[in-house]
Amino acid sequence: MGDDDAMQFDSIGYRHQIPNPAWYNPFKKRKGAGITHVDLSIPEGSIIGLVGTNGAGKTTLLRMISGILPLEEGTVKRHDSVMDSDALRSLVGFMPEQVRWSSQGTIRRTMTEFAHLRGCSVQSALDVLAVVGLKNRMDSTLDSLSQGMRQRLSLGVALLGTPRVLVLDEPFNGMDPVAIDAFKRLLRSLANKGISIIVSSHHLAELDHLVDTIALLHRGQLLAHGTTDSLRANLGFEQMTEIVLDRQIEQELLDAMNVLEHIESERQHRYVIESGHHDLLETLVKNNHTISTWRVVPPTLIELLCAATGMDRETIGMDVEQSSMIPFRTVGGEEE
């Protein structure tokens, strides 16, 4: 564990209890899907993107990191000291996926309540509202908040007591692009202040330009963790470039490269090619092409999964559909 690690999770595991009724015991349960042997280091001030398909175990892992679910296996350390769940919860701020804050109570009352639960001063809790842009709505009732404001309130609650690690479960769900952009900028500024952030998503594109490293989770296992470049190097998938220009690229140029996608619309041609053609841009300019877009395309989740598991797209798709993780704990109705 490095000195700059905010936290280190060693071989942690948790399996959900799912109903397994028998005639002699209708409440019998058995261990179902969960997380197995995950090792994860969270460096100070870094943003980790936790990606995986539906049912991969992202929420379960985030709940373990937040101290909501117990660690059935493994340990969590901070500066080489093993922490218990109480200590873990005091260092982690958790924002679940879409909390439906609703009551006639105000934002001020909610923050006051959570300040007591968190053990921080009420004034500092109210100050957090300025950070998330809710200071002017302090006395609004929770029922009157929009989805975006509810997300901000959830973030505000997660930020109480200056946590060392911020855990965000699908924070962009239900947010408009403007709000997402503002949210990303806020997260980056928090990371710059030394707060480590783990943010989950099943859309890699959402995490584009936000995360420092990507952790790829599949069927409860952490398949890979690193920067996009290191993942590409380790998993062996090619970087792609998107080019949008005014007319079709000359055939001799096309023959020299691997074109993955070509979409022709009214006045422009969009190509996605494997990167590595260093003189292509110069050649296109010389040939008097008007280039409106030239960018490196981040890998998609499915490409990462294919690279990490060695399976093809169809198999991955079927694998996800047939995964024992879906549904997690809904068998047998309402009982856990």
Partner: peptide, 15 residues
Amino acid sequence: RVSGVLEVRLSQPMP
């Protein structure tokens, strides 16, 4: 529990 607030409560340091 239905609204998701329970998850936030259980993630707080108060035992």
